[in-house]
Computed example of a mutant assay.
Amino acid sequence: MKVLVAVKRVIDYNVKIRVKPDHSDVDLTNVKMAMNPFCEIAVEEAVRLKEKGIATEVVAVTVGPKAAQEQLRTALALGADRAIHVETDERVESLGVAKLLKGVVDQEKPDLVILGKQAIDTDNNQTGQMLAALAGLPQGTFASAIGIEAGEIEVTREIDGGLQTVALKLPAVVTSDLRLNEPRYAKLPDIMKAKKKPLETHTPESLGLTVSAAPALLKVETPAERKGGVKVASVDELVDKLKNEAKVL
């Protein structure tokens, strides 16, 4: 079976985010970029399926600028067999990404599509669900465990009440949660081998699609600094502060 795994280029989670002086966007000047952590989990799961002999090919795909090929090479170093880059310099929202990924799915005909449940920059948690809807495929979101047998995949999902297990017919779309696995680190020999693995480049137009205008980004601000808490001597004092200072009562 063929597994298609989507990855996204984001600011490294260890980096302190800076906002541009004019508040027009996040400042990316000399900022370290990395693969979205949930996408790392998705790549790891796809590679493990190949190591178990369940998957025969793992294909990594990303949508983004030319620099996003760095994250595809990382996926190749972690064990993906080849990569597909849908190159665009436009800011693409979740629905646009889902449409572009559907174009790739239509070409590649994978048996399983794995995505991270969300990206740590936009935090939307939408692309996997939108892709499943557009492609008409069953979906298992927030996966903490998966098992594949006889053309069916069982996905254990993390929900508010605990765990839920769903059975899906393949092909299907799965989004990975934190507890699905622990991603490996790429070894130096694998990083060198990744440079020779095939990386195919597309444009939205070559997939028969256009990147529609995204919602206008009006302003970006850093969160307000939180003030230190205070201890109160009694319930009456607490109620008074909530009523007169915080004004939440």
Score class of each variant (00 low, 15 high):
residue 170 L to D: 01
residue 162 G to W: 03
residue 185 Y to M: 13
residue 230 V to F: 04
residue 234 S to L: 07
residue 183 P to A: 05
residue 215 P to C: 08
residue 162 G to I: 06
residue 181 N to R: 07
residue 172 A to Y: 04
residue 179 R to P: 00
residue 213 A to G: 09
residue 216 A to S: 09
residue 189 P to F: 03
residue 205 E to I: 11
residue 188 L to E: 01
residue 215 P to S: 12
residue 245 E to I: 08
residue 195 K to T: 13
residue 192 M to F: 10
residue 165 T to R: 15
residue 228 G to H: 08
residue 189 P to L: 07
residue 169 K to H: 06
residue 187 K to G: 01
residue 237 E to H: 09
residue 223 P to R: 10
residue 184 R to E: 02
residue 239 V to T: 11
residue 220 V to W: 04
residue 209 L to V: 09
residue 193 K to M: 02
residue 195 K to L: 11
residue 154 E to M: 05
residue 189 P to Q: 04
residue 155 V to I: 14
residue 221 E to S: 14
residue 180 L to H: 00
residue 183 P to E: 03
residue 163 L to Q: 12
residue 237 E to K: 11
residue 238 L to S: 11
residue 160 D to L: 08
residue 238 L to I: 09
residue 227 K to D: 01
residue 225 E to S: 13
residue 216 A to M: 11
residue 242 L to S: 05
residue 210 T to A: 13
residue 207 L to G: 13
residue 246 A to R: 05
residue 200 E to M: 08
residue 195 K to A: 13
residue 208 G to K: 02
residue 242 L to H: 02
residue 204 P to R: 03
residue 221 E to V: 13
residue 224 A to G: 12
residue 185 Y to C: 04
residue 201 T to M: 09
residue 237 E to S: 06
residue 243 K to R: 13
residue 229 G to H: 03
residue 154 E to V: 11
residue 189 P to W: 02
residue 205 E to P: 13
residue 214 A to V: 07
residue 200 E to Y: 05
residue 196 K to R: 15
residue 151 G to S: 08
residue 151 G to T: 12
residue 240 D to P: 03
residue 241 K to S: 00
residue 238 L to M: 15
residue 171 P to Y: 02
residue 197 K to I: 09
residue 163 L to R: 06
residue 164 Q to M: 14
residue 181 N to E: 02
residue 229 G to E: 06
residue 241 K to T: 00
residue 210 T to K: 15
residue 192 M to L: 15
residue 197 K to G: 02
residue 185 Y to A: 10
residue 240 D to C: 05
residue 211 V to P: 01
residue 246 A to N: 07
residue 228 G to E: 14
residue 239 V to M: 12
residue 170 L to N: 04
residue 169 K to N: 08
residue 160 D to M: 05
residue 176 S to R: 01
residue 207 L to F: 10
residue 166 V to H: 00
residue 229 G to F: 02
residue 178 L to S: 08
residue 244 N to W: 05
residue 155 V to T: 06
residue 163 L to G: 00
residue 181 N to A: 03
residue 151 G to E: 06
residue 203 T to Y: 03
residue 238 L to A: 15
residue 184 R to V: 07
residue 220 V to E: 02
residue 178 L to N: 11
residue 189 P to V: 07
residue 165 T to D: 06
residue 157 R to F: 05
residue 241 K to H: 05
residue 244 N to F: 03
residue 247 K to A: 11
residue 171 P to D: 09
residue 220 V to C: 12
residue 157 R to K: 14
residue 232 V to L: 12
residue 173 V to N: 05
residue 149 E to Q: 14
residue 170 L to T: 04
residue 234 S to D: 03
residue 243 K to A: 15
residue 211 V to F: 04
residue 245 E to N: 14
residue 211 V to N: 01
residue 230 V to M: 09
residue 230 V to I: 11
residue 166 V to K: 00
residue 232 V to Q: 04
residue 192 M to Q: 08
residue 190 D to Q: 13
residue 219 K to I: 13
residue 180 L to S: 01
residue 203 T to D: 06
residue 159 I to L: 07
residue 184 R to C: 01
residue 206 S to H: 10
residue 236 D to F: 00
residue 183 P to L: 05
residue 185 Y to H: 09
